[in-house]
Structures are given as C-alpha cells and as structure tokens.
C-alpha cells in the first residue's frame, strides 16, 4: 500500500492507503474531515470540491496519491479560527443554502472562482462558473447572490496559485 503525505488545512498528514483510495475518501474516512461531501460520485455535482495548491478540484475523481506533497484545503480549513471566511459569511448572510449538502463544494468553488475571475463578478459569470456544482433545493438564486457578495468581500485576495506565479 502506498504511503501518502500531504498538508491538509495547515497540518501535515501521512497514511498508508490502498491505491484506489480517492482523495475524498482519504479526507472523510482517514482524517474524519466529513465537511467534504460525496454527492453523485460521478464527477458532476461538485459537493466534493476542495483546493489543492489553490486549485479547485473534484476530490471524488482524484486519487489521494495524486496530490502527494500538496497543500490541501477543505471547507474545515477555510475559516480563520472562529471568524468565518468572507464567502462563508456571505452564504450565511444571504441564506445561500437550504439543506446544506452542496454548500461546502459551492463555497470552495466560489472562493476559487474569485481567485480566477476577480472580485467583481456579474450574475452570468457566476452562473456559468457554477456549471460544476449542483444544488437540488434552492434554485441557485441565493447562492448566486451570496457569491456576488462574498466575492466583493474578498476583494484583493488573489489566491495562493496566483501569488505563487507572481
């Protein structure tokens, strides 16, 4: 069994896992970080989105060993202690959820959306960029509102991938 080591939410972690272990299984079952969800398990719904070195990806379609040595951030690692991340705060403020199942993936995608597209996002951009995240309850309206507000609150945050490139 291969050994995988990575940094998750700032903490170094290491484990022997079966080669078949998906990143989402590693996070949920080995590390007990159950905020990252498995919705469709077919790379479509985005409930499993996490950041790997500042890039949003579907952790249900990535083997744990593929991100060996990487810096992984899950929804649990987004807040700064007790202070919610501005995007989390915006989802709360705008009631950008109903059942909440898709919310971790929505928020992780939204944060990376701002890193890639900037903090001044129009509705069409937000809706297009949410192509990889499905919500079965809200009709997206409040999610779009939340991302619009959260993006503004994130102004100036260009993300780790962009910073590393500069």
């Amino acid at each position: 069994m291969p050994t995988v080591s990575m940094t998750v939410n700032g903490k170094p972690v290491s484990a022997n896992v079966d080669a078949r272990t998906l990143l989402v299984q590693f996070l949920r079952e080995n590390l007990r970080l159950t905020g990252t969800h498995v919705g469709c398990d077919t790379s479509q719904c985005g409930a499993c989105v996490v950041h790997v070195d500042g890039v949003a990806l579907k952790s249900c379609t990535t083997f744990a060993w593929q991100v060996e040595g990487a810096n992984v951030t899950t929804i649990e690692g987004l807040a700064n202690g007790d202070k919610l991340h501005p995007m989390q705060e915006a989802f709360r403020e705008n009631h950008g959820l109903q059942c909440g199942f898709c919310t971790p993936g929505m928020i992780m995608s939204a944060v990376e959306m701002v890193w890639r597209k900037g903090s001044d996002l129009d509705e069409q951009t937000i809706r297009e960029e949410l192509d990889g995240n499905l919500c079965r309850c809200t009709g997206y309206h409040n999610i779009v509102k939340a991302i619009h507000a959260g993006a503004r609150a994130m102004a100036g945050d260009r993300g780790p991938a962009q910073q590393a490139a500069e």
Binding site: S43, G46, V49, V55, A56, L57, K58, T61, T62, S109, E112, M113, R116, E129, D131, G132, N133
Partner: peptide
C-alpha cells in the same frame, strides 16, 4: 470543456 474543475485537471 466540462466545468471549471474538470478544466483544472
């Protein structure tokens, strides 16, 4: 192609 996460990979 696909969605932003697919394009990232």
């Amino acid at each position: 192609i696909g969605d932003p996460h697919v394009r990232n990979r």
